[in-house]
């Protein structure tokens, strides 16, 4: 049953990705990228990662789409006619994919309970969290308590990105006004 749900969700996601590849109207591309994020959130739920699904639906499908729409409004709404088909990108992509698939052959099976990822420290975290923190949600406990400093580091990254965005497009309206005065 799980495999079936995964396959259906995956089929929908590949269709969405191919539609994004073919579409030339950027508005449709942006909307489809939101659809893609929501579908991936569904897949996260089937993979037991409910917190990740929340975040993906809110941040990935919500904020990303708003940012993309804003960019579209400030730039252009249509993609130029695609360049002539070139086999080189396709070749690069197929070779990279083949190498990655070769790499997965040595991996433990999906969902196996004795894979290295499950047998290392994960069990320790699950065992200690109720005693150490008293928080029922283990993901929250690790994020905010055990790995609080890493989350602080994440905040620093977001802050840096915000400063970068402000520096890049801070004076957008002012520059545009000056330009209009210059052309008149």
């Amino acid at each position: 049953m799980d495999v079936l749900i995964n396959l259906v969700l995956f089929g929908m996601m590949v269709t969405t990705a191919l539609a994004i590849l073919r579409m030339r109207r950027l508005f449709a591309v942006v909307m489809l990228s939101g659809v893609f994020s929501l579908l991936s959130a569904l897949l996260f739920v089937t993979l037991d990662a409910v917190d990740v699904a929340f975040t993906e639906a809110a941040v990935g499908a919500g904020i990303s789409t708003v940012l993309l729409l804003g960019t579209m409004a400030l730039t252009s709404r249509k993609e130029k006619m695609p360049r002539k088909f070139s086999p080189i990108p396709l070749l690069v992509v197929v070779v990279t994919g083949a190498v990655l698939i070769y790499g997965t052959l040595d991996m433990p099976s999906f969902g196996s309970a004795d894979s290295p990822a499950q047998t290392h420290v994960a069990a320790q975290y699950l065992e200690r969290t109720p005693k150490d923190t008293g928080v029922p949600n283990v993901v929250t406990a690790i994020l905010a308590s055990y790995r609080g400093y890493d989350t602080f580091g994440e905040t620093v990254v977001v802050f840096t990105a915000a400063v970068g965005v402000l520096i890049l497009i801070g004076g957008f309206a002012r520059r545009r006004d000056e330009e209009e005065e210059g052309t008149d």
Partner: peptide, 11 residues
């Protein structure tokens, strides 16, 4: 991170 037959890590 998925374990077969497992559930979300929320107690």
């Amino acid at each position: 991170g998925k374990v077969q037959g497992g559930t979300a890590p929320i107690f």
